[in-house]
Simulated scan of single mutants.
Amino acid sequence: MQRWDRIEAFVEVVRLGTFAAAASHLKVSNSHVSRLVSQLENQLGTTLLYRTTRQIRLTDAGALYYEHCHHLFDGFREAEAAINDLQARPRGILKLTSATTFGERFIAPLINDFLCLHPQLEVRMHFTNRQVDIIDEGYDIAIRMGTLKDSTLIARRICERREYVVGSPAYFTRISQPHSLAELAHHRCLIGSRDHWRFDVDGVRREVRVEGAWEANSGPALLDAALKGLGLAQLPDYYVEEYLDSGALVAVLDAYRHSDTAVWAVYPRHRHRSPKVRQFIDYLVEHIAETLPTQRCTARVS
């Protein structure tokens, strides 16, 4: 410990330019700082500073020693700041956007639970299936589905997401189940927010354009149509797994199921140290399995 005191005294004298300034910063006397630097020089067997009545000047050895040592104390200060930041209470307004159904069913309850723990925080939630520009529109976090496009945003994987092509048993009494992607052309496809479905063929992503007489930009409406036998639909797991378990829906084309998909929390790079952003995402990753139908969560940084 004594050696660190000597090094710190030397570094502060050089950084601040005088023994008096270093003593004031370290809250000790000038003589104590001078004594620590002299002890360090004796310990190293070399002169580190040339002292005059007006100024100090580094020797060659002093310049070399300072270059190696001052980074240590910069690191200490950064470590202390990081710990203080970690312990800081989230404050201000947390503004978040998410896809509508997933946000309403799974994200909103977790936000509400988080707010119970941190009542000093304010929350603004916006649920939409529109791709939101979170920087231009001032959001702290966006919850996004599927494969992410390259961007300057930081993304954290919060859980897996599987997509199924499903139909009802009543539908399959009228037309046989498809076993290849080409057979989709002979089926009534229920179209949601996109008119192409995603698959994997021998490890390669493929998009198949589908056609049908039914279209809506609503997941619940799409699910209802599939349950009533109006056609095939491609829907994520959190819509259909309970109906697959009960037999109300049947999954087809599982051999081609698109695997490169997940649920992500994305946020602007400059906000990654904000306590409200960091702590909520940590909370989300830790607890989202409690809200999902199955335990499919994996926390991973991308």
Rank of each mutant, 00 (worst) to 15 (best):
E78R: 15
T291S: 05
Q295F: 04
D245P: 03
E104V: 11
E242P: 00
H258C: 03
Q39F: 03
H71V: 14
T152V: 10
Y66L: 07
E160G: 14
R57Y: 07
E286G: 01
G203A: 00
R57L: 04
Y171A: 07
I175K: 07
V13C: 09
R269F: 09
A255C: 11
V132D: 01
A155P: 12
Q279V: 02
L244I: 00
R6C: 02
G231W: 00
T294H: 14
V240Q: 04
D85C: 03
I135P: 07
V277H: 02
G45Q: 04
L96S: 11
I143W: 04
H126E: 12
D150M: 12
R188Y: 10
R162V: 14
E207A: 06
L244F: 07
S218Q: 03
E160L: 13
R162A: 15
V123C: 12
D5C: 05
P90G: 04
D224G: 11
E12L: 05
V132K: 08
A82L: 14
G45M: 07
P90N: 04
L249P: 03
Y139N: 08
R257F: 11
R130Y: 12
Y243D: 00
R77I: 01
G146I: 10
G62V: 08
H179F: 09
R54N: 09
A9W: 00
L153Q: 08
F199N: 01
L223G: 11
R194W: 03
S151I: 06
L292G: 00
V277Y: 09
G231M: 09
H270G: 14
P275I: 06
I288A: 01
L72M: 08
P275E: 07
C116L: 15
R198T: 08
R273N: 12
V250R: 03
E8Q: 13
G247Q: 05
R124S: 13
V204Y: 13
D85Y: 04
G231F: 12
V250L: 15
D150T: 10
V301A: 15
E41D: 04
N217P: 11
G146L: 03
S151L: 05
H179D: 07
R198H: 06
E290P: 11
R144Y: 10
L44E: 01
D237M: 00
D254Q: 09
L64P: 07
R161T: 05
I141M: 06
D85W: 06
A142K: 00
R57Q: 15
D224L: 14
K276D: 02
C159K: 02
D224I: 11
Q177M: 06
E215I: 03
V204S: 11
V13G: 11
N112E: 15
F114V: 04
H25A: 15
D136V: 06
E80M: 15
A20G: 09
V266Q: 06
V263E: 03
A20V: 13
A99K: 12
E183P: 02
R15S: 07
E241M: 10
T101F: 12
R6Y: 09
L223C: 00
R162K: 15
R206S: 09
H68N: 14
